[in-house]
């Protein structure tokens, strides 16, 4: 989406049932996202905000700093005070933007705090297509007759398909689009043999039985679709993890990080919120601070290697 603006929305909430707990130094916490209102990350954060507010006993506000595919939000966050008042909602986009352009601040200028969720990526095809399994799609692609699709040109999804090509030793064409919806049309009308995307994007079609899931591109099967196997189970070593977590300015005090490390597992266990995020097909994926720093630098390194190897960047 190419719109951009900044919206400040104070989430009205009931702080009456605050559980007794260590007090967080800030009463209002702003979560910034590079997603514009109505975009995937924005909807996710706005749904999470009231529950997070309740669990932590603070007011959580969502702020959109769209523009430059995250460059603006990163620059703002790198300059913010590390007082626990503002955080940046991470997705792989901020790593791609850091590597593809030369923004004022890069992902390495931010401190990863904790991870909260993983968005499952799935491979799917039209329900009316003749492909019933991933293997059939790969067989079709042998000899260069396959047509696969990813939502955006330089994205985690594209990277996953390119690696799938390598590991399976096939050479289908990979077409990219202007977003997942655009691609979905081409899966439905069978221009493409197979598409890759977030489960959330294809929910409407999935409910109506018009698309068929072929495989999960992650380490585990999904709880909602226990019959769908992972790519790894089919003998191809491929797994991507689209993360959703928090990052902040460098120099974040230890006790603030600890507060989030305590709060996020509590949030994920909260029954009301659990029902909501399960319905939205999000996988809880808490990663504490120390591991998250490593996770992020590994992710950045792998992405950089992929982009360099394919000649997108130097």
């Amino acid at each position: 989406m190419r719109l951009a603006l900044l919206v400040l929305a104070v989430v009205a909430l009931l702080v009456s049932s605050v559980a007794a707990q260590a007090r967080y130094p800030k009463s209002v916490v702003i979560l910034t996202t590079h997603s514009s209102p109505g975009g995937g990350s924005d909807v996710f954060l706005r749904e999470m905000a009231p529950h997070l507010s309740r669990v932590m006993g603070i007011t959580v506000v969502v702020e959109n700093v769209a523009g430059g595919s995250g460059a603006r939000a990163m620059a703002m966050m790198a300059k913010a005070k590390p007082d626990g008042g503002t955080f940046y909602a991470t997705t792989p986009t901020f790593i791609y933007t850091s590597l593809l352009s030369s923004p004022a601040a890069r992902y390495t200028d931010l401190e990863p705090i904790v991870n909260v969720f993983f968005d499952p990526e799935v491979l799917y095809t039209a329900a009316s297509s003749r492909f019933k399994t991933l293997q059939q799609v790969i067989d079709q692609a042998r000899g260069g007759r396959g047509r696969w699709g990813a939502g955006n040109p330089a994205s985690l999804e594209r990277q996953a398909l390119e690696r799938l090509k390598q590991r399976a030793g096939v050479s289908p064409v990979v077409a990219t689009f202007e977003g997942g919806g655009d691609m979905l049309i081409n899966v439905l009308n069978q221009t493409l043999d197979m598409g890759i995307g977030e489960l959330q994007e294809i929910r409407g079609q999935l409910d109506a039985g018009r698309v068929r899931l072929l495989a999960v591109v992650g380490d585990e099967r999904l709880m909602q679709f226990p019959d769908v196997g992972t790519v790894k189970e089919q003998g191809i070593d491929l797994s991507v993890r689209k993360f959703r977590g928090l990052a902040g300015p460098k120099g974040m005090p230890r006790e603030i990080v600890a507060a989030w490390e305590a709060a996020v597992p509590k949030l994920l266990a909260d029954p009301a919120y659990r029902q909501l995020y399960t319905r939205n097909n999000l996988q809880p994926g808490f990663i504490p601070h120390a591991e998250y720093v490593k996770f992020m630098s590994d992710f950045g390194g792998q992405t950089q290697a992929f982009l360099k190897q394919s000649g997108v960047i130097r």
């Binding site: 330089a154 594209r158 190897q309 000649g311 997108v312």
Partner: peptide, 12 residues
Amino acid sequence: ALAAAIPDSALA
């Protein structure tokens, strides 16, 4: 001149 300077890409 600017177009000619666009680097090659394996994804192209």
